[in-house]
Amino acid sequence: TTVHIGNVTYHFDNPEEAVKWAKEMAEKLGLRIEIHGDTIRVE
């Protein structure tokens, strides 16, 4: 599972961890997340 924040990509072996981490980052940055299969974007 990959999480994209701007130009930076993070890789997670556990999809649930990826979603949890992306949600925390989105809250901190005042952004929202979009999930497309195994790709998560924070925008």
Rank of each mutant, 00 (worst) to 15 (best):
T1Q: 04
T1L: 08
T1F: 12
T1W: 13
T1P: 05
T1E: 01
T2E: 06
T2S: 08
T2L: 10
T2M: 09
T2Q: 09
T2I: 11
T2Y: 08
T2A: 07
V3F: 01
V3N: 00
V3R: 00
V3E: 00
H4S: 09
H4T: 12
H4M: 13
H4L: 13
H4Q: 13
H4A: 08
H4Y: 13
I5W: 07
I5T: 01
I5D: 01
I5R: 01
I5A: 03
I5K: 01
I5V: 09
G6R: 06
G6I: 05
G6A: 07
N7F: 08
N7D: 11
N7A: 10
N7V: 08
N7G: 13
N7S: 11
N7R: 11
N7K: 13
N7T: 10
N7P: 08
N7I: 07
V8G: 07
V8P: 01
V8R: 15
V8W: 13
V8T: 11
V8Y: 14
V8M: 14
V8N: 13
V8D: 11
V8C: 14
T9H: 10
T9Y: 10
T9G: 05
T9F: 09
T9S: 12
T9Q: 13
T9R: 12
T9P: 05
T9N: 06
Y10A: 04
Y10I: 14
Y10M: 09
Y10Q: 04
Y10R: 13
Y10F: 13
Y10G: 02
Y10K: 11
H11W: 14
H11D: 04
H11E: 06
H11N: 06
H11C: 09
H11P: 04
H11F: 14
H11K: 09
F12I: 02
F12L: 01
F12R: 00
F12P: 00
F12K: 00
F12V: 01
D13Q: 10
D13M: 09
D13L: 10
D13G: 06
D13E: 11
D13R: 06
N14M: 05
N14Y: 05
N14K: 07
N14S: 12
N14G: 05
N14W: 05
N14V: 07
N14I: 08
N14R: 05
N14C: 06
N14A: 05
P15F: 15
P15S: 13
P15K: 14
P15D: 06
P15Q: 13
P15L: 15
E16K: 09
E16G: 07
E16I: 11
E16N: 09
E17S: 08
E17G: 04
E17L: 11
E17P: 03
E17H: 07
E17N: 07
E17V: 09
A18K: 00
A18N: 00
A18P: 00
A18L: 04
V19P: 00
V19Q: 08
V19K: 09
V19I: 15
V19H: 11
V19E: 08
V19C: 05
K20D: 06
K20P: 01
K20E: 09
K20S: 08
K20T: 08
K20M: 10
K20Y: 05
W21L: 02
W21D: 00
W21Y: 06
A22N: 00
A22K: 00
A22T: 02
A22F: 03
A22L: 04
K23N: 09
K23D: 04
K23A: 07
K23H: 09
K23P: 00
E24A: 13
E24N: 08
E24R: 10
E24F: 15
E24S: 11
E24Q: 12
M25D: 00
M25R: 03
M25L: 12
M25Q: 09
M25T: 05
M25I: 13
A26W: 03
A26K: 03
A26Y: 03
A26P: 00
A26N: 02
A26C: 06
A26T: 03
A26D: 01
E27R: 08
E27T: 05
E27L: 09
E27K: 09
K28F: 10
K28T: 07
K28G: 06
K28D: 05
K28M: 12
L29W: 06
L29G: 06
L29Y: 14
L29C: 07
G30C: 09
G30D: 07
G30N: 11
G30T: 02
G30H: 10
G30K: 06
G30P: 02
G30I: 03
L31V: 12
L31I: 06
L31H: 10
L31C: 13
L31R: 06
R32A: 14
R32Y: 11
R32T: 15
R32G: 13
I33L: 12
I33G: 02
I33N: 01
I33T: 04
I33C: 08
E34F: 14
E34M: 12
E34L: 12
E34G: 07
E34I: 15
E34N: 14
E34K: 14
I35W: 09
I35K: 04
I35Q: 05
I35N: 04
I35F: 10
H36M: 13
H36G: 04
H36Y: 13
H36D: 14
H36F: 13
H36A: 10
G37Q: 06
G37R: 05
G37S: 05
G37F: 05
G37K: 06
G37H: 05
G37Y: 05
G37N: 06
G37V: 04
D38V: 07
D38N: 15
D38A: 12
D38F: 03
D38G: 10
D38L: 07
T39H: 13
T39N: 08
T39S: 11
T39G: 05
T39M: 11
T39Q: 11
T39W: 07
I40T: 02
I40G: 02
R41S: 08
R41T: 12
R41G: 03
R41N: 07
R41M: 12
V42E: 02
V42D: 02
V42H: 02
V42K: 01
V42P: 02
V42T: 04
V42F: 07
E43D: 11
E43Q: 14
E43C: 09
E43H: 14
E43T: 15
